[in-house]
Nucleic acid binder design. Sequence first.
RNA 1: GGAGAGGUGGCUGAGUGGUCGAAAGCGAACGACUCGAAAUCGUUUAAUAGGAAACUAUUCGUGGGUUCGAAUCCCACCCUCUCCGCCA
Length: 425
Amino acid sequence: MLDQKLIRENPKSVEENLSLRGKLYDIPQIHKLTINKKEIDVEISDLQSESKKLSKLIGQEISKSQSNNSEELINLKKKGNEYRNKISKLEERQRILEQEINSQILNLPNFPSKDAPIGKDESHNIEVKTWGDPLKKEDLKSHWEIGESLNLFDSIKSTKISKSRFITLIGNGAKLERALINFMLDMHTKNGYLELIPPALVNSESLTGSGQLPKFSNESFKCSNDDLWLSPTAEVPLTAFHKNEIIDPKRLPIKYVAYSPCFRREAGSYGRDTRGLIRLHQFNKVELYWFCDPSESIEAHKKITSDAENILRQLNLPYRIVDICTGDLGFSSSRTFDLEVWLPSSKCYREISSCSNCLDFQARRSSIRTKIEKKNTYLHTLNGSGLAIGRTMAAILENGQQTDGSVKIPDALVPYFGSNFLKTA
RNA sequence: GGAGAGGUGGCUGAGUGGUCGAAAGCGAACGACUCGAAAUCGUUUAAUAGGAAACUAUUCGUGGGUUCGAAUCCCACCCUCUCCGCCA
């Protein structure tokens, strides 16, 4: 959430900053509302002050005179009543304005960072680094072909259970999924992250706090009888974990790693990635999350990205890092580095992790602060996948495929998986 | 799901219509004493919004209501605890 005061006092700069995203936002409109509300705030405060003084006076008079319906008292009460009427009328207007302003501000995305490349869409994203040698050969199988031949998962049967875009992992497929989760959690906890397993269902307030609501209600599954949603990413419960808190600066940075299932409706993606493990309504993910001092978030962003990268290196999967341009940035993010893993069958890099610096955007929405020189200050939050499990499995299957149809398991994963190769049973 | 109890500052906990943003204690900070410390004594110690400041307003789970005036009375909701039921 953007700072209401900033919009009131500096609407031009807000508008300029947001325009980098390549969309129009009606800041003058909101600006007018905030000015209007401010006037009413002052007016109400003045009237309340008067009314409070009067009430005290009445109290004093009553205790002095013993009787409580002298003519003087009746007049004073009448005056008090007038105050009350005036105030409640103003408060009504204040409430409406507040709601209007709030709903508009909650729909404004974060400011893009000055360092993010300027551009309209993903074609303007910048590749900043590549690692490893992308496997380029003809006759390479897709991961879903490999999965089928090695009987690792079944999507057809899963449509009976649920619908399309769900998967059932089978035998070694299930075991590989489990191995990947454990491997990643171990790597990150050794590296200073505290492990959390948060609830998979989250309430509306939590989704609003991290930026999924109100704008993207279409992208999450909602429970019909409760104010609960299936969490689309552990970023949501992790942000909400410290909602409405003032965190001792000595505790910062706080670094969490969380395994969680993630649920996404994938509305509007009909026909894309319909096969395999790339785009599912339910997938597992290990998520990294930082709460840090505002002065340290740029460094933290580099660190969280390299912590995610570390997993890809350990697994020996070729990847690249992409600096997301202003027009392609997610709603809550000011700067994002995507990690993209090489998928030989489609001869391209696919996103496997998105590492974002949200600055104080989520912290303000969720009211998470720290003390800096005795002043309460919104801290900064960062998140990054470390990594998406399904896509990692897809990458291992495709990059590790052998001519005999088996798949080589990356060395670092062998202790977790229990053997060097995936073969037909 | 049923019955009961309760939600007050960093914590414990008093407060059932008036000067209560809230006693007392604990904790914390600072000062005195001390070579230093402990103990003791003294002072200070909630947040938010606005304001350069003085100060003003709001906040006793949340939202409404009654009243000149609400932590206190009324209504709705949320949450926690205990007991019963059900259950992995």
